[in-house]
Design a protein around this nucleic acid. Structure first.
Lengths: 225, 225
DNA sequence: ACAAAAGTGTTGGAGATACACCCATGA
DNA sequence: TCATGGGTGTATCTCCAACACTTTTGT
């Protein structure tokens, strides 16, 4: 009997108006006394379900949104990754066979937080956006490691397409620059950043501008195609 | 019932004296008439076995070697990836439940072919080194895609440590350069290549030289640490 | 002596970096 | 009119690419 529980965990990142990177965590209630711990949104892959399709399904079921950047970045397969005490409490409540190992496939998802914030009720579960630097180191399972690996992955694979997937379809160059600065964890020179953007030729200037801001309104841009 | 067969497939690459990249393929006999097809070495992950440990075990069981570069690069999880006719014939011979889907985790392994060639009997299965450009496009399952993805992965992640893992412990700079040229698929300038090597500071010159070559003997180098 | 690969420096150009001031808007 | 972020060009430096001849060995 070689079969294994296979799950998907999604590291859903967003970029808020307060210009912080945030990750979406859900509450897992581990007993009937309202004790809970935070965890990444994730679930078991269905039998006969493609892995990427499963990731999309799970993400949609938790956040109601589709057509967002979604990328597999690693597998987490230590046999004891679900074996600590709190994790076992939760598994006993919700799974038939809490002692069986679970291998999980990690996906990163980048979303535009503006699409979510107005109606937090969109989430099918009790969920919170937590600033990356404020994430507890006591998440369920090995979810702290999964988040760290996801952010590492993004740093190594950052490009304009990826960065703009965290922004509204029309965005300012400063917003784009801030995402690069957050993910790369360094300040960038505004003029050089803009030179590089236009050389890469992925971004188009629209005729629209910001409105209602107490300073010179910025032009809005869109991704090519 | 969500449980899934989880396997490991290893793309074992080597660099032969004829200066070609080769991949290790095994023969899968699909009936009693000696009909076979080629496939990547791989097997089911054991219950309660760490994923990386499983990859090491499977590789060792097929090639007898340990302590080689081994890196996870992707998951292949289409539900129909084991469903074509020839694949089903083989599965019916060797697996209890041939119709069940199998998700596989791809690993790349780089080996020094000199450690293998002298005794092909080391392989526990009937195996062959096949030049990358000569691999049939009729491999079992989705193994052609797995190989292509592995090579892509290596191109994107090439460094000195990785390249030297395909060479004997003492090697010449020309050998190292040829591996880079093969994986990157472009000619490199000898002087610039050497400048970069020494800047990276990962490689140490030994006092030994090649012997018996009909030209100026090259110095031998080793990886640092 | 010849064939074959080893080994070795310099230069020019492209691309990256550093840097400071004026502009448009809301309050 | 002031505070705020938007928007723009140039000079310097660093890094990378291009390039050819001499050396050492076996035959």
């Amino acid at each position: 009997m070689n079969k294994i529980n296979l799950s998907i965990d999604c590291v859903v990142l967003s970029f808020d108006k307060d210009q912080k990177l945030k990750v979406l965590l859900i509450k897992k209630y581990i007993n009937s006394k309202n004790d809970y711990q935070f965890a990444l949104p994730g679930d078991l892959l269905r039998i006969d379900e493609d892995v990427l399709c499963g990731a999309k399904r799970i993400l949609k079921s938790l956040t109601s949104l589709e057509n967002i950047y979604l990328k597999q970045f690693a597998v987490f397969g230590h046999p004891d990754r679900t074996k600590n005490k709190k994790d076992q409490q939760w598994l006993k409540l919700y799974r038939k066979n809490p002692n069986e190992r679970v291998v999980t496939i990690g996906y990163v998802a980048l979303v535009n937080i503006a699409d979510f914030l107005p109606k937090p009720s969109l989430f099918a579960v009790e969920a919170e956006w937590v600033e990356l630097s404020a994430v507890s180191n006591q998440l369920a399972f090995d979810h702290n490691k999964i988040i760290n690996d996801a952010v590492e992955f993004l740093k190594d694979n950052l490009d304009y397409k990826l960065a703009t997937s965290m922004l509204p379809s029309k965005f300012t160059l400063s917003q784009l620059q801030i995402i690069f600065e957050l993910l790369l964890d360094q300040k960038l020179d505004k003029r050089n950043f803009r030179k590089n953007i236009f050389k890469a030729d992925h971004i188009i200037k629209t005729k629209e501008k910001q409105k209602g801001v107490p300073h010179k309104p910025a032009h809005l841009y869109v991704m090519k195609k």
